[in-house]
Design a protein around this nucleic acid. Structure first.
Lengths: 237, 237
DNA sequence: TATGGATCCATA
DNA sequence: TATGGATCCATA
């Protein structure tokens, strides 16, 4: 798989020049590069999306890519996934107002802050959270918001969202995250840097190496969401 | 349907005291109150979620609620839905840096900013966008981010997200938006007020009036093939 | 083609 | 039970 670019939306207190960041960035770029299909080929070749009977599109599923990435980070790069890095629920809520009473009000925090795909600590102590984003594009918004909150609260020093280019997006599960649809929101997240003391927020864009129309299997798809419905429809058509 | 509360996350330049805001808030609260089931009963009674064979849960679909709300706003309250209020793609992108080159870079905006469920203008000229959020909880993040960007860019003066209480959430389609899961992020959106000249950002929380285990139909999932699919699957289990 | 859903899955 | 995710749908 191809690493295309890493966008640093903001950087406070020079995390960008730290050894920890350099080390982790090199590492996850190697993990991205390691993802191939067929496995062992050294190249991520995807079968191009294809229209099937009933007007539906056949595309590549995304679980395989995610599993390969996380696996390489742990086994080949030697990072330990630390599991949940959580924010307590008793942090300060902003003073908001109710309407129409205009009373001051603090909404209780009643959900946990779920954690990240991968959190680790570099040798210099830098805590980095990485999100491999192949969920729905709206899920990318939640991931970015979550990274921003974690940076604001000082529980991580660097946050990265890894997501598909628009070109890769076309050939994977419909409506997954992609840089194109996030591009109009970058200014919003960049704006949050004012509330961060130390921290870097980044997006890394990735892409397939090659596309083919030939005799090559699609990446397997799971049974999530409306898959069953879609399959029933396809087999009927 | 019950209006529970309206949270004003921020308010710049006293939109909260404007006549336009008061008028629109009263209006949409009436539209919320008008949603009943069975239709004409005056009460939104929902059949409680129920575990069915195969371990699945049977729940109420969400299309009906959305349709009733929008319909009431237009026909009973007399608001005109203005359709897409869009941001041009040529707005200024923040100066972000590439890594590792550290070059300055501006990611091109390659997606349109899709618009809101309902946009209207009050008699005093106040432009208000309303999002009726019964999509996935991650979609609520996108909606809030979008309202925030629209306020920052001055294309609306007030933005409202209407979403279910945690109690209502339990009985509707799995994983839809709810105030509980958004509660930990309110500080982030509140923080964006610094970049807004004039504008109010609000969340309105809604709930059913009653639950029943009795002989009462689940809210229909729509007039398309989905309800049929769901029944087929459930009856197979 | 593009964008906002609506729906059910996997797993701690 | 709770949270993040994956998958296809509806429609302009």
């Amino acid at each position: 798989m191809k690493w295309l670019r890493t966008l640093v939306l903001f950087d406070k207190d020079d995390v960008i020049d730290s050894l920890g960041w350099a080390t982790i960035h090199e590492s996850y770029v190697r993990s991205i590069a390691s993802i191939d299909y067929l496995e062992g080929s050294g190249t991520l070749t995807l079968k191009r999306k294809q229209r099937v009977a009933g007007g539906q599109w056949q595309r590549n599923g995304v679980n395989y890519l995610r599993a390969r990435f996380l696996n390489h980070m742990i086994t080949a790069e030697g990072w330990k996934a630390e599991g949940v890095v959580d924010l307590s629920r008793d942090r300060q809520q902003p003073a908001i107002r109710l309407y129409p009473s205009k009373e001051l009000y603090r909404e209780p925090i009643t959900s946990d802050f779920g954690g990240f795909d991968f959190v680790t600590t570099a040798s210099d102590g830098l805590r980095v959270a990485i999100e491999w984003e192949t969920g729905n594009i709206s899920s990318s918004h939640r991931s970015m918001n979550k990274l921003a909150i974690a940076l604001t609260n000082g529980i991580i020093d660097a946050g990265v969202l890894i997501l598909p280019s628009r070109a890769l997006y076309e050939h994977l599960t419909d409506r997954i995250g992609n840089i194109g649809e996030l591009s109009g929101y970058l200014a919003m997240w960049e704006n949050l840097k004012a509330g961060v003391t130390k921290g870097l927020l980044a997006i890394t864009v990735v892409e397939h190496d090659a596309l083919t129309d030939g005799d090559h299997p699609y990446l397997p798809a799971g049974n999530d969401g409306r898959a069953r419905e879609g399959r029933a429809k396809a087999s009927k058509a």
